[in-house]
Design a protein around this nucleic acid. Structure first.
Length: 156
DNA sequence: GCCAACGTTGGC
DNA sequence: GCCAACGTTGGC
């Protein structure tokens, strides 16, 4: 079992949306970055745990946990010409992008803000806290996962 | 709204 | 295959 962090804009899909339908499998679509796609396609496994990170909001930070309920399959939005995520170069025979499904697991009492993550020295290797980082799907080591959980515990 | 950082595109 | 131009991300 592995750990991950997925970014989402809460206007699009938030931890509250997941929590509102805890039995539902949510399509995690719209990943359009090759490095992020390769993680989804090659490494994300069933029942892996995922920190849900809220980006482009105030304040950005980790809001809760989801689990992987379906491993990678072709992202349907790449074939949909009315979608923002449409990709004319993708075909059903040769899909370019993949999606996974996630399920709600937990919402933290308080969001763990990015500035706290940045202050915590042992997390400095995470792409998340590095300047200019744009990776929307990233692995989280066992140690990082435990350290972040303890930060959550401290502030709750 | 600004803009730094970064990924992608396309001409050569 | 280089690299300038461009578009996007995402914190501030």
């Amino acid at each position: 079992m592995a750990y991950w962090l997925f970014k989402t804009e809460p206007d699009e899909l938030s931890i509250d949306d997941l929590a509102a339908e805890p039995e539902r499998n949510f399509l995690w679509d719209g990943v359009r970055n090759y490095q992020a796609r390769n993680f989804l396609r090659d490494q994300v496994q069933l029942d892996d745990l995922v920190f849900i990170y809220h980006s482009s909001c105030k304040p950005p930070g980790i809001a809760g946990i989801a689990s992987i309920s379906r491993t990678a399959y072709p992202d349907p939005t790449q074939f949909d010409s009315s979608s923002l995520y449409f990709d004319a170069k993708a075909t059903e025979q040769q899909p370019r992008w993949v999606a996974v499904d996630v399920r709600y697991k937990q919402k933290f009492g308080k969001l763990l803000p990015l500035d706290k993550l940045k202050k915590f020295g042992t997390l400095e290797q995470m792409p998340l806290v590095k300047k200019g980082n744009r990776l929307s799907v990233m692995p989280v080591s066992d140690t990082e996962w435990q350290n972040i959980l303890s930060l959550i515990h401290d502030q709750d």
